[in-house]
Design a protein around this nucleic acid. Structure first.
Lengths: 198, 198
DNA sequence: TAAAAATGAATGAGCGTTCATTCGGTGCCG
DNA sequence: CGGCACCGAATGAACGCTCATTCATTTTTA
């Protein structure tokens, strides 16, 4: 660590604390998680947290920004290869579920705390989440222009519905604890929607 | 009130407190709502709350039981008239959204605090919610037996997806604040699913 | 060896819950 | 019928505990 730049070290510490926070929030939820618990998991002192984040709230918000950005990045890149909207929908489901599959703690935080954040800090707009929805809506819009999806469908409404379905199913999977078979589930769900959209 | 029986008075008070709690939770969320705030809204003293509920947690749980029971009741009754599964799906969407439409506070609590409750008190199973899902799954199963829905669909998975979609769209509507046009939205969503299920 | 980073004990505000006290209605008694 | 005793419901001030946050001090870095 001593050979790294100041900026690198700061990023490293932030990451370390955010990772600890994701794990802790996933286990207990935001309100039941103590700042001292996050500190313990991150292997730093309580006070250190406050050198990197303004407040406990700020941790949650940063967490969304950083992690959602990563999710968006992965999905966006992967869908570049797809030839049509239908394929992109399928891929979207598959990818989203596999990301969640690989990082269940993240899933919990997104699913549960995302809801809270709406109430949580009214002025926090959750721009990354909006971006995800916009992206999904744009896929549907593309499909309509390609002529493979019905034109009377509202892309934004449907995007929300799709996200809701994915999110709920994901959440259910988390609590079920059994092997998820997420790729099979993803396929069967995207089939349902694609069929419905046509 | 003096002419009512003890039991009636108790129920009245409980209802009064639960109504206040729904409103308060909807506005601030469970954790940010003070017990004293619920008391104020209900027009009773802080201590009175504890004559009717064991704890703040208990208020939230009772709230689910009571309100969800009502929702289930309404839906169940209304769907008795339907002739086939497809119609029942349409009606389910329409009814759920109209109930939510009429009582936005309830929607918020169901949507947001339901998520939390999974974390909230691990041992709370939320039986009423499970019943709703089971009911939805049974409609889909019926449709398969009637031969109008594809047989390779998993009813339980799909029930979850449907609930998730409804729930998310509902939530989005709440924050949008504009007139919901909920019946049009409900129809267009149920169309999507029915089409997908066929 | 000066500056930056990290520490963790101390602080105190916030809030769920309790409980000694008050209130109001009911029925009993003279 | 009027006054009185009783009881359960309601009250709300006070309690005590739980943390998020701070900051004087120590440790590390360059």
């Amino acid at each position: 660590m001593q050979s790294s730049t100041r900026k690198e070290r700061t990023q490293f510490r932030q990451r370390q604390i955010l990772d600890a926070a994701v794990a802790a929030f996933a286990e207990k939820g935001f309100y039941k998680t103590r700042v001292s618990e996050i500190a313990r998991r991150a292997g730093v002192a309580d006070g250190t947290i406050y050198l990197y984040f303004k407040s406990k709230d700020d941790i949650l918000i940063s967490l969304f920004e950083v992690r959602m950005e990563e999710v968006l990045q992965v999905i966006h890149e992967a869908l570049l290869d797809c030839t049509d909207a239908e394929q992109r929908i399928h891929e979207f489901f598959r990818l989203y579920m596999s990301i969640i599959d690989r990082d269940p703690a993240l899933a919990e935080v997104i699913t549960i705390e995302l809801r809270q954040s709406d109430k949580f800090i009214r002025e926090y707009e959750n721009p990354k989440f909006k971006e995800l929805l916009r992206y999904l809506a744009s896929i549907i819009g593309d499909g309509q222009r390609e002529g493979i999806f019905r034109s009377e469908i509202d892309p934004r409404l449907t995007a929300r519905a799709i996200f809701g379905a994915l999110d709920e199913v994901t959440l259910a999977g988390l609590f079920a604890k059994r092997p998820l078979e997420s790729s099979r589930m993803a396929r069967s769900l995207s089939e349902l929607f694609v069929q419905g959209l046509r």
